[in-house]
Design a protein around this nucleic acid. Structure first.
Length: 236
DNA sequence: ATCCCGAGGG
DNA sequence: CCCTCTGGAT
């Protein structure tokens, strides 16, 4: 009698056609963005962690503009751990959300010193537990610093996954689970960066350049985006 | 669900 | 003017 197969415990259903679209997406992105990589500037795992925390709801360009002075003043976790939030604020003000981020960074640096010897732990649970670092930040840091396989889901990755019919989820954690089911593990990190790059260059949040998209032939949202020229609004 | 928040683009 | 930007904490 129960037609509804999976309860809350089971994995959510993928969009129709996701399994056949995934390899097409992978091939198109590999061809279009063979050199996709992290665009945050950093010299070591600590700098990557700080830059990623700062990148929440901010562009990588604005983060990269502020971090040289920030790292000049606080080159490592030990130096930053003795800072007050008020000492950090003026250095990151231009990024936005600066009070919460300064408070988090001061607490984060202290936690790195107190619990991890001043180093960024190579451990997902430990990074997620740091102030200001959630699942997305932990995935970015571990994949770029330590080669950990992950697809960090940010605003771009989530939007493109939905438009491309790879996930029907709005929750980033569920989108991540869908994408990791659809793509081979060794391509996860590349696909994360390639989806972001495509979101920045072509599949904009507001007015995507569908005619110039390498995936226009199989994207289920093609056409939908051209139906609302006045507002420029596009269904997610 | 709401708040944090400056900078850049259309 | 409006929306968006490699989210996270409450």
């Amino acid at each position: 009698m129960k037609l509804k197969a999976a309860g809350k415990a089971g994995a959510a259903r993928l969009p129709v056609g996701a399994r056949t679209r995934a390899p097409l997406v992978q091939a198109a992105l590999t061809g279009a963005y063979p050199d996709a990589r992290c665009e945050l500037e950093f010299r070591d795992p600590f700098e990557l962690l700080v830059a990623t925390v700062l990148s929440a709801q901010a562009t990588d360009v604005s983060v990269n503009k502020a971090t040289p002075a920030l790292f000049g003043r606080f080159p490592d976790a030990h130096a930053m751990s003795v800072a007050e939030a008020e000492d950090i604020e003026p250095l990151i003000r231009s990024i936005g959300l600066y009070r919460a981020k300064a408070r988090n960074l001061a607490a984060l640096a202290r936690q790195l010193v107190e619990r991890h010897g001043g180093e960024v732990p190579n451990d997902f649970a430990a990074v997620v537990a740091l102030p200001g670092a959630g699942r997305k930040t932990a995935n970015v840091v571990l994949s770029n610093a330590y080669g950990y396989p992950a697809i960090a889901v940010d605003t771009h990755v989530g939007r493109l996954a939905r438009r491309l019919g790879l996930s029907a989820q709005s929750n980033p954690d569920k989108v991540e689970a869908d994408l990791e089911r659809l793509f081979p593990r060794e391509r996860w990190v590349f696909l994360h960066h390639a989806l972001i790059l495509h979101g920045r260059r072509v599949c904009f949040a507001r007015r995507p350049n569908c005619p110039g998209c390498v995936m226009r032939d199989f994207c289920p949202k093609i056409g939908v985006t051209e139906m609302q020229p006045e507002t420029g609004q596009v269904p997610a």
